[in-house]
Computed example of a mutant assay.
Amino acid sequence: MKTEDAIWSALEEVIDPEVGVNIVDLGLVYEVKVDDKGRADIEMTLTIPECPLADEIVKNVKEATAAISGIHEVNVSLVWEPKWSPARMNDRAREEIRSRRSLV
Rank of each mutant, 00 (worst) to 15 (best):
residue 98 R to K: 14
residue 29 V to P: 00
residue 55 D to W: 08
residue 60 N to Q: 11
residue 90 N to I: 04
residue 4 E to F: 15
residue 26 L to D: 07
residue 81 E to I: 07
residue 78 L to S: 04
residue 69 S to P: 06
residue 52 P to G: 01
residue 25 D to E: 11
residue 65 T to V: 08
residue 45 T to F: 00
residue 89 M to P: 12
residue 50 E to A: 11
residue 34 V to D: 01
residue 80 W to R: 05
residue 82 P to V: 06
residue 71 I to D: 04
residue 12 E to R: 09
residue 100 R to L: 08
residue 14 V to C: 05
residue 64 A to F: 07
residue 37 K to N: 15
residue 52 P to Q: 07
residue 70 G to Q: 07
residue 83 K to V: 09
residue 3 T to V: 15
residue 23 I to E: 00
residue 58 V to L: 03
residue 40 A to Q: 05
residue 16 D to T: 09
residue 58 V to K: 04
residue 74 V to E: 02
residue 64 A to G: 02
residue 39 R to M: 07
residue 85 S to V: 01
residue 86 P to Y: 02
residue 25 D to R: 04
residue 29 V to W: 03
residue 70 G to I: 05
residue 59 K to W: 08
residue 21 V to E: 01
residue 75 N to S: 13
residue 76 V to H: 04
residue 22 N to W: 05
residue 47 T to A: 10
residue 12 E to Q: 14
residue 19 V to D: 12
residue 54 A to I: 11
residue 97 I to F: 13
residue 21 V to W: 01
residue 37 K to A: 10
residue 79 V to P: 00
residue 62 K to S: 07
residue 104 V to D: 08
residue 34 V to T: 04
residue 13 E to S: 14
residue 57 I to T: 02
residue 96 E to A: 13
residue 58 V to D: 01
residue 47 T to Y: 15
residue 6 A to C: 14
residue 77 S to Q: 07
residue 6 A to M: 13
residue 9 S to V: 10
residue 61 V to T: 03
residue 29 V to G: 00
residue 21 V to G: 03
residue 7 I to A: 07
residue 56 E to D: 15
residue 81 E to V: 05
residue 82 P to L: 11
residue 45 T to H: 00
residue 2 K to H: 12
residue 22 N to H: 02
residue 48 I to M: 14
residue 36 D to T: 11
residue 61 V to W: 01
residue 87 A to I: 06
residue 67 A to G: 10
residue 51 C to Q: 03
residue 55 D to C: 02
residue 22 N to D: 12
residue 54 A to L: 07
residue 94 R to A: 11
residue 37 K to Q: 14
residue 14 V to H: 03
residue 35 D to F: 01
residue 5 D to G: 07
residue 42 I to H: 00
residue 20 G to E: 07
residue 5 D to C: 09
residue 88 R to N: 06
residue 103 L to T: 13
residue 78 L to K: 03
residue 14 V to I: 13
residue 65 T to P: 02
residue 104 V to T: 09
residue 92 R to H: 09
residue 69 S to T: 12
residue 87 A to C: 05
residue 78 L to H: 04
residue 53 L to V: 15
residue 103 L to C: 09
residue 27 G to V: 08
residue 59 K to Y: 14
residue 72 H to N: 15
residue 78 L to G: 03
residue 17 P to H: 10
residue 75 N to E: 13
residue 67 A to D: 12
residue 62 K to M: 10
residue 69 S to F: 11
